[in-house]
Simulated assay, not measured.
Amino acid sequence: MPQVSVRGQRLDPYKNFRFRVKFSDSTDYIAGVSKVSGFKRTTEVIKHRSGGDPATSYKLPGRTEYDPIQMERGVGAHHIFEAWANKTWSFRNAAGGLEASLQDFRRDITIDMFDESGQKVLSYQVFNCWVSEYQPLSDFDSNANAVSIQHIKLENEGWIRDIDVVPPSDLQFDDPVA
């Protein structure tokens, strides 16, 4: 049970395995997503020094870059990762000179995080994602006892936390003995 402070605020951190991923233009979650890499944003540092001050330089924020996000899901009957990856490059279409779908290869995704009671507590929107790397199957190994996994690497142009999603107050179950 989560620790609760005197004021009823949650103290325990949320668990990292309670999440779901969906395309931002859909209400359905993508089935089987088992792993999403962490988000990382890096802003370059621009050093500036005044001509009359040889000992000190000032630092200003420069260009901001967003690292790719990696996602994994179990291989199954759904081909959603493959279809999306084929928008960027398709072997079948490359023979005819149509290597990429410029119209809809970029998609926004939403990653939602849930608490122990299944209530949404965090939501992030990731913008203009496209598949730069696709691995349809993991290694085959007859001695393994594992699920076959697909991997995609998503280039993106940034992300924001949806500030309208507010963690709900903690639920308290009725004491069956009382």
Results as ranks from 00 to 15, higher is better:
residue 12 D to S: 15
residue 21 V to Q: 03
residue 108 D to Q: 11
residue 107 R to T: 05
residue 26 S to F: 01
residue 39 F to K: 00
residue 114 F to G: 04
residue 13 P to C: 07
residue 57 S to D: 14
residue 42 T to F: 12
residue 161 R to Y: 02
residue 35 K to D: 12
residue 53 D to K: 08
residue 47 K to G: 07
residue 72 E to R: 15
residue 18 R to M: 13
residue 145 N to F: 10
residue 40 K to G: 04
residue 121 V to M: 06
residue 66 Y to P: 01
residue 154 L to Y: 02
residue 29 Y to L: 05
residue 158 G to M: 05
residue 36 V to Q: 03
residue 101 S to R: 09
residue 99 E to L: 14
residue 29 Y to K: 04
residue 98 L to A: 14
residue 56 T to H: 14
residue 141 D to M: 01
residue 51 G to R: 08
residue 5 S to Q: 13
residue 13 P to D: 13
residue 88 T to R: 12
residue 71 M to E: 04
residue 119 Q to G: 04
residue 80 I to A: 11
residue 157 E to H: 06
residue 148 S to T: 06
residue 130 W to G: 03
residue 174 D to K: 12
residue 163 I to T: 15
residue 176 P to G: 02
residue 136 P to T: 03
residue 75 V to H: 02
residue 13 P to I: 07
residue 28 D to L: 03
residue 137 L to Q: 08
residue 51 G to I: 02
residue 57 S to E: 14
residue 128 N to F: 12
residue 69 I to T: 08
residue 71 M to V: 02
residue 114 F to N: 03
residue 147 V to P: 13
residue 73 R to A: 04
residue 130 W to H: 12
residue 171 L to H: 10
residue 38 G to V: 00
residue 91 F to M: 04
residue 32 G to H: 09
residue 136 P to S: 12
residue 67 D to I: 08
residue 39 F to N: 06
residue 74 G to V: 05
residue 73 R to Q: 10
residue 151 H to E: 12
residue 18 R to I: 03
residue 137 L to Y: 15
residue 82 E to P: 01
residue 25 D to E: 11
residue 168 P to G: 05
residue 27 T to E: 15
residue 174 D to S: 15
residue 169 S to L: 08
residue 159 W to Y: 11
residue 11 L to W: 00
residue 84 W to Y: 05
residue 51 G to D: 14
residue 25 D to M: 05
residue 157 E to Y: 07
residue 166 V to E: 10
residue 119 Q to E: 12
residue 130 W to K: 01
residue 134 Y to H: 10
residue 136 P to H: 06
residue 62 G to V: 05
residue 111 I to H: 00
residue 24 S to F: 01
residue 62 G to Y: 04
residue 121 V to R: 10
residue 154 L to E: 05
residue 51 G to M: 07
residue 4 V to H: 06
residue 139 D to R: 13
residue 93 N to W: 02
residue 146 A to D: 13
residue 5 S to R: 12
residue 113 M to A: 11
residue 130 W to L: 15
residue 15 K to F: 06
residue 177 V to M: 10
residue 174 D to N: 14
residue 34 S to F: 06
residue 94 A to T: 14
residue 55 A to L: 11
residue 71 M to Y: 04
residue 64 T to E: 03
residue 74 G to W: 05
residue 31 A to T: 11
residue 142 S to N: 01
residue 172 Q to P: 08
residue 92 R to N: 13
residue 39 F to Q: 04
